[in-house]
Simulated assay, not measured.
Amino acid sequence: MPTPETSPIRELDVRPMLQAGEEPFQAIMEAVSALAPGESLRLVAPFRPVPLFSVMANRGFAAQDRALDSGDWEVVFSPVDDVQIEAGLTAGSSPSAAFWAEPVQELDLIELEPPEPMVRILEALEGLQPGDVLFALLAREPVFLFPELAKRQHEWAGNFDASGTAYRLLVRHGGGRAHG
């Protein structure tokens, strides 16, 4: 596994965006999508971007952060070995999913058009207790749902069925606890 010191690093400074009143999340996700295999992302921000840590962990990146002398923060997101890909799960799936309880609720959302599946999943999660698991069947991989789940501190694991026509998603209610 490459370490942050040995892997190539792409840099993104979001301070100018934030100073201009812009939301940098999309630019960060675009930078991550543009990374080559094994490449890391060095992010510079005016604060420690804690919510981004779980988003990036779900995408297979470990975070190393440090405060800069200026009061700003530097975070290097480096790719980690993805054993869950070998297990057939989508990159970013929680490695602990194999140990979760059986789902307490199941949703068949395969006939719905976006954003309705995401809305229904988030609504259903509001009614669940910490640790409860939700299962959803979708027509496509819910890529826009993953950052929303991370913001709410929920974990997820998913993959396509054998035919490749349905995406199976498990979501574990995080209970609003921060993951460290």
Rank of each mutant, 00 (worst) to 15 (best):
T6N: 13
T6Q: 11
S7I: 05
P8W: 08
D13Q: 03
R15L: 00
P16H: 02
L18D: 05
A20N: 11
A20Q: 15
E23W: 14
Q26S: 06
A27Y: 00
A27R: 07
A31E: 13
S40Y: 03
R42C: 14
V44R: 14
A57Q: 12
R59M: 14
F61A: 08
F61P: 12
F61H: 15
L68K: 01
D72E: 06
E74S: 08
V75I: 12
V76L: 09
F77A: 10
D82W: 09
Q84S: 11
A87Q: 10
G88S: 04
L89A: 13
A91M: 09
G92Y: 12
S96I: 13
F99T: 10
F99Y: 08
F99C: 08
F99H: 15
W100A: 11
A101T: 11
P103R: 10
V104P: 07
I110C: 07
E111C: 01
E113F: 05
E113L: 08
P114L: 04
E116F: 00
P117E: 02
V119M: 00
I121C: 05
L125A: 05
L125S: 06
G127C: 03
Q129A: 15
V133T: 13
F135C: 05
E141M: 02
E141R: 06
V143H: 03
V143C: 01
L145I: 00
L149E: 02
K151H: 11
Q153L: 13
E155G: 11
A157H: 03
A162Y: 01
A162N: 05
G164M: 00
T165M: 06
A166S: 02
L169K: 01
L170P: 01
L170K: 12
L170A: 00
R172Q: 06
R172K: 13
H173K: 10
G174W: 07
G174P: 02
G176L: 06
G176Y: 09
G180V: 09
